Computed example of a mutant assay.
Amino acid sequence: MPEPRIPVIIALDFPVSAQALDLARQLDPAVCRVKVGKELFTRGGPAVVEELTGLGFEVFLDLKYHDIPATVAGACRAAADLGVWMVNVHALGGRRMVEAAAEALAGARRPPLLTAVTVLTSMEGEDLREIGLAGTPRENVLRLGHLALESGADGLVCSAREVTDLRCAFGVEPCLVTPGIRPADATGDDQRRVVTPAEARRAGADHLVVGRPVTGAADPAAALRALEAEVGGL
C-alpha cells in the first residue's frame, strides 16, 4: 500500500475565502493538505487555490466533475494549470468521461492525481434505490470503482467502510481517499457512513478527509495534533 507523506486532508468548507485562508494560516502544510470544495471555489474562484498553494499547501480540488467527456477534459486541464495536487470526477459519468479526464491530465506539466467518486458518503441503500441503482452501497462502490480504475483513474474517493473490500478487489496500487472521518468523540453531522481516523488507516485508506472536527475547533492546530495522536502519529 502506498504510504503517503501527509495522510490528512483538511476540508476548508467555508462560504468565503477569508475564512478558509484564516483557518489555513493556523495549520502547518508540512502535516496536512487542504481540500477546496464547490462552495468555496464558486465564491473564491481560482484565486483561493492560488493563495493556498502560495501558503505552501497541496490542494485537493473537490469539484466532482460530471459532464460530457470534452467538458470534463477541459476542466481537468484547467485544474492542472492551477497546480492542484488532486482533482476528482464522478464515476457515474462513465468510461469515456473518465478516460478523457485521465488523458487530459496526462498531458499536463505536473499532472494532478485523478480520483473518482463512487458513492457519496451521505448515501445509503434506500437512497440508491430511490435513484434507480440496484444493489447495496458496497456493490455499487465496487462496480464503479472497477470502471473508474480501468478507465485511468489513479484512485477512488470512498467511505472508509468500503476500503477493505476495495483493497481486496484492486490491491495496493489505487490511492484511496476517505471522507466521512470523525474522531472517536465527534458527531457524524450529515455524513452517515463514517469511521474514526484509526479505523480508516487500519483498513488501508491512504488519505483521510477531515472537516469540522478541525475547522470548527476553538484551536484548529491543537485539534489537528489530537487527530494525529488518535491514529498513533500519522
Rank of each mutant, 00 (worst) to 15 (best):
V87R: 01
V84M: 10
V16R: 15
I10T: 08
T42C: 05
A102V: 06
G211N: 03
F60G: 04
V157P: 01
V214G: 02
V36N: 03
R192H: 02
A108T: 11
R95H: 13
L61Y: 00
P174Q: 03
L23K: 12
L142N: 00
G152M: 07
D219P: 10
V231G: 14
R161W: 11
G125V: 01
G107M: 05
V194N: 06
G125Q: 15
L55F: 14
T42F: 07
P69Y: 13
A47K: 13
L82K: 15
A30V: 00
P15F: 04
M97H: 12
I9V: 13
G155E: 11
D185E: 15
A11P: 07
E150S: 12
Y65G: 00
M86F: 11
E162F: 08
G45F: 06
V195R: 12
L149K: 07
A153E: 05
R225C: 13
Y65N: 00
V59N: 06
M123D: 03
R202I: 06
V119C: 10
F14T: 14
V214P: 02
T196M: 04
T71M: 09
N88Q: 03
R167P: 00
A205L: 12
A101M: 12
A200V: 08
A200W: 04
I6N: 08
H146C: 06
I181W: 05
G44Y: 05
V117H: 06
V84Q: 04
D206N: 15
L105A: 01
T115P: 00
G216K: 09
L40V: 07
A47C: 09
T164E: 15
F41C: 03
Q19L: 14
T196D: 00
M86R: 08
P4Y: 09
K35E: 03
I131W: 04
P2A: 12
V89H: 11
A229E: 14
G216E: 11
L40I: 04
V72A: 09
V87K: 01
I68C: 04
K35S: 00
V141W: 00
E103G: 04
A203H: 03
N88E: 04
